[in-house]
Nucleic acid binder design. Structure first.
Length: 569
RNA sequence: CGGUGAUUAGCGCAGCUUGGUAGCGCACUUGGUUUGGGUCCAAGGGGUCGCAAGUUCGAAUCUUGCAUCACCGACCA
């Protein structure tokens, strides 16, 4: 490609709307342009990268035995009503009507369509297992699209679905997909981790997320420093502290804590550490009778954070997790937020394992502006149950039993689930077994955020000059950059000849034939992140040499023109 | 959905307090100059100042409403 005939569209200045580095560089390097909130046009350079990611994903899926299909982005509402998600999905599902006023959705995912297809096409156990995938545009009406294509509303996703007679067979495919994902991210050249994940709203049993590690990631990943264990913080179990709880040494005493509403306030006022306090959160419980919502108290150590997923998964707690209103607080505890404690509380109390291990702790007294010190479980309050309620923090013992937890940020680029029979059941997707009986199938589902990978790769591979693409997804492998070609016939001839040679050898080469100063060309190619620059100038032509610059390592070296193909051996 | 802020040329911004011919840098066009790291000089093109209403002789500027965008929170794969 010649730059004179290309749409480079590089920007010197960073558009104000771009917050994270990948978004800034994608705009500056001319990869994408914003069309509306969360919607992007891919420019030629960006599309090349996107297609490369897509092709690697496709090759590895096919190699793992998955068959490519293409389902429509617009799906009839009937299918969603059949699965129950028309009600369950909420406002993220964009619903539209056609000219006949029939309801459709823009597909945020395709479980319904594929399950329906398989229900119609597959009749016998002999046709199983089946694994199909597509690479398709999805639409999710995100509340807050941000970070460019990292969290767009429209995005490119590879989604695969597998169908099985039994869970042993599903396990096998799940493992094959796990391995395929590892190969994909290895080939992409990214630093990634598979982590144990919460199954979230899709529901199901086993689940792993694949995260690209980057400080700008939106998820916290808990790692063990003593093993391979990695889990989403949402899912990582917080173990009970080792050893027995200490015996009480203090008597329970009321202290005045005027205007101390937060744990920090209380700890400061009483000159104690937050780890010797507990906080009590009141949330709505599961409704028992009509119009009656019980309030449940959740007790955590002062320095710990509530894990909403863990709380929601408890039978007594309403899902989604909802905090008690101010009126409910006063009715249940007799005081306002900031002074609530477990002692004498007349509602169900669930205590986190770490909070339950404390002795002589501080908590609210259920009287405004009063706290209790020297409180002890079982002596001062007896009616409670213990559960894992909190987020793990760095330094916690790892739930795998080896080493301690370390926390890093990750960008979720892949997610594999064992779905079970939720959709197959709803859509009556079954086959006749060897025994001639109808049996509902069990499913797996496997997603990769193709467009998000482009952004994640940049987050992980950039410097102050621009993008440093891993070779596998660079839009061009090499740039031919002539110095002052307009003035030197020798430079022009050499550059043209090199370009021809590389091109006919099938190498993706971009030839900067613009009448620009060297600095402009260097800056553009470094911004775009082409891994190799071949610099052709008068000063080296006497020796029949060109300069080779490696974008990734920054190394420069001289190379005989005749040996140029050795770079691609 | 709540809080905050923004909206002036393709991009980045000034002008608004104190109403009076719409500006700067980058980018773009033309000519010259320069040529191994975003040259320099000159001349040009490009804007219903987000939209609507109001106040006023006169509104980018003051008032009100609306829209869009962004950030923080909540929510979410």
């Amino acid at each position: 490609m010649r730059t004179s005939q290309y749409l480079l569209s590089t920007l010197k200045e960073t558009p104000a709307s771009a917050e994270v580095i990948s978004h800034q560089l994608m705009l500056r390097a001319g990869l994408v342009r914003n069309v509306a909130s969360g919607l992007y046009t891919w420019l030629p350079t960006g599309l090349k990268v996107l297609r490369k990611v897509e092709n690697i994903v496709r090759e590895e899926m096919e190699r793992a035995g998955s068959l490519e299909v293409l389902m429509p982005m617009v799906q009839p509402a009937d299918l969603w009503e059949e699965s129950g998600r028309w009600e369950d999905y909420g406002p993220e599902l964009l619903r539209i009507n056609d000219r006949h006023n029939r309801s459709f959705v823009l597909g945020p995912t395709h479980e319904e369509v594929i399950t329906k297809l398989v229900a119609n096409e597959i009749n016998s156990y002999k046709q199983l297992p089946l694994n199909v995938f597509q690479i398709q545009t999805k639409f999710r009406d995100e509340i807050r699209p941000r970070f460019g294509v990292m969290r767009g509303r429209e995005f490119l996703m590879k989604d695969a679905y597998s169908f099985h007679l039994d869970s042993a067979c599903l396990d096998k495919t799940y493992q094959a997909m796990f391995d395929a994902y590892c190969r994909i991210f290895d080939r992409l050249g990214l630093d990634y981790r598979p982590v144990i994940a919460d199954t979230g709203s899709i529901g199901g049993e086993a689940s792993h997320e694949f995260h690209v590690l980057a400080d700008s990631g939106e998820d916290d990943i808990a790692f063990s420093d003593g093993s391979d264990f990695a889990a989403n913080v949402e899912k990582a179990e917080a173990l009970a502290p080792a050893g027995d709880r200490a015996a009480p040494t203090q008597t329970m005493t009321e202290v005045a804590t005027p205007n101390a509403r937060t744990i920090d306030d209380v700890a400061k006022l009483l000159s104690i550490d937050a780890t010797t306090t507990v906080k009590t959160l009141l949330v709505q419980g599961t409704s028992t009778k009509e119009n009656e919502t019980p309030i449940v108290a959740l007790v955590l150590r002062g320095d710990h954070q509530l894990n909403e997923v863990k709380a929601e998964n408890l039978a007594q707690i309403a899902s989604p997790l909802t905090f008690a209103t101010d009126e409910q607080l006063v009715a249940a505890a007799g005081c306002n937020a900031g002074s609530i404690g477990p002692v004498g509380l007349n509602i169900e109390v669930i205590v986190d394992r770490s909070a339950a291990h404390l002795a002589d702790f501080v908590c609210g007294a259920n009287k405004d502006d009063v706290h209790l010190t020297g409180v002890n479980w079982d002596r001062d309050t007896t009616s409670y149950t213990v559960a894992d309620l909190r987020n793990v923090v760095a330094g916690d013992p790892s739930p795998c039993g080896q080493g301690n937890i370390e926390i890093k940020r990750g960008i979720e680029v892949g997610h594999i689930f064992q779905l079970g029979d939720k959709y197959a059941q709803a859509m009556n997707c079954g086959v006749l077994t060897e025994a001639g009986k109808n049996q509902i199938l069990t499913m797996g589902c496997y997603g990769i955020g193709v467009s998000r990978i482009v952004a994640a790769a940049i987050e992980q591979n950039h410097d102050k000059y621009g993008i440093k693409w891993p070779a596998a997804i660079a839009p061009y492998q090499v740039a031919v950059v002539p110095m002052n070609m307009a003035k030197s016939a020798r430079v022009k001839e050499t550059a043209e000849a090199l370009y021809e040679q590389l091109q006919s050898a099938g190498i993706e080469v971009i030839f900067d034939d613009r009448k620009e100063r060297p600095g402009v060309m260097f800056a553009d190619h470094e911004l775009i992140g082409t891994p190799l620059l071949l610099v052709i100038g008068e000063r080296n032509l006497d020796n029949q040499e060109i300069e080779v610059k490696n974008r990734i390592t920054g190394e420069k070296s001289m190379l005989a023109i005749a040996d140029v193909m050795s770079l691609f051996a």
